[in-house]
Amino acid sequence: MRNRISLFGWPELIAVLLLSCGFFVPMFTRSVLIYSVLNQVFIGVVAAQSVWIMLRMNLLSFATPAFMALGGYTVAIAGRYEITNAFVVTAGAFLVPALVAVPLGALVLRLRGTYFVLVTFVLSEIVQLLIFETPSLTGGSDGISGVPPVTLLGTDMATNRQVLQFCCGIAVLATVVTGGLTRYFRQHFAAIEENEILAESLGLVVWRYKALGFVVAAGIAGLAGFALVSMLLTAHPSSFAAAIAVDFIAYTIIGGPTSILGPLFGTGALVYATNLFGTHGQYAQGLYGILILIVMLVARGGIVGTVGLLFNRLRGARR
């Protein structure tokens, strides 16, 4: 029977192509507003993908802000020592949270369901408090401002245009990693999501895939934190408050958890709506709340799942 393994499928390809369009946006516009919205989308997509990886295994994680903070502060602290090489700091922003996630994963992945949710929430609170308690390293409640822009092949990524394109690059990189991982281990993740006990009794080493997912999700979140810091040129604790995990979970759930296009479309739609409805996004949270209720009660597939369903129905009707 079929046992084909592929690294990339259509959804992954579409996601990468769509995100790559961001590189060409500066050819058409110089609008600061559009740049700012796009940067928010790029950062949001990366963070939402981190949530999505764990959701593939039926684990809802509130730990994204914790690992974002690790990635962001790694870059900010590296900047103090004038380490700004784009490749080095990108690797650092991925690897530091990923390495921290190895021992943490060994602890928290013993828990399932509600208990996992609670422990990841607690983790984000702890990291937030740790930032306040270590002012010599992290600047405490003041954060670290004046982070130098990263340098790519000898050029500072300092202008609006360069920051946008760099964030775009990070989002594409994160999508390639996330897409590759979830596509390569699609069977394993899907089996754990649907029936962990059966998968394990058939011989699947479940903890190994959960740990791998957790570590990569931490690294991806680190990249999101990096992108955020390189946009603001500041690492501030308020950027990584535990409560922002809710936004990324909303992006993922509302976009639809079944495909990598879910976090992408969810982030795009919600960030756009946030900027459309209020200048400072003051309606955003209420909107997310209403959409979450709608998705949970009547459209469990989210945007992507519902569109797919309608598409199939139309095709069926035409036949």
Partner: peptide
């Protein structure tokens, strides 16, 4: 009217209460 429909699904009920929280706190803010 809402929670009862999904009461056996842990993640779903959690998301519903989260949604309600967002609506409540934003409604009060507004």
């Amino acid at each position: 009217f809402l929670l009862e429909r999904l009461v056996d699904d842990h993640l779903a009920t959690l998301m519903l209460t989260l949604g309600l929280y967002l609506i409540l706190s934003n409604g009060l803010l507004q």
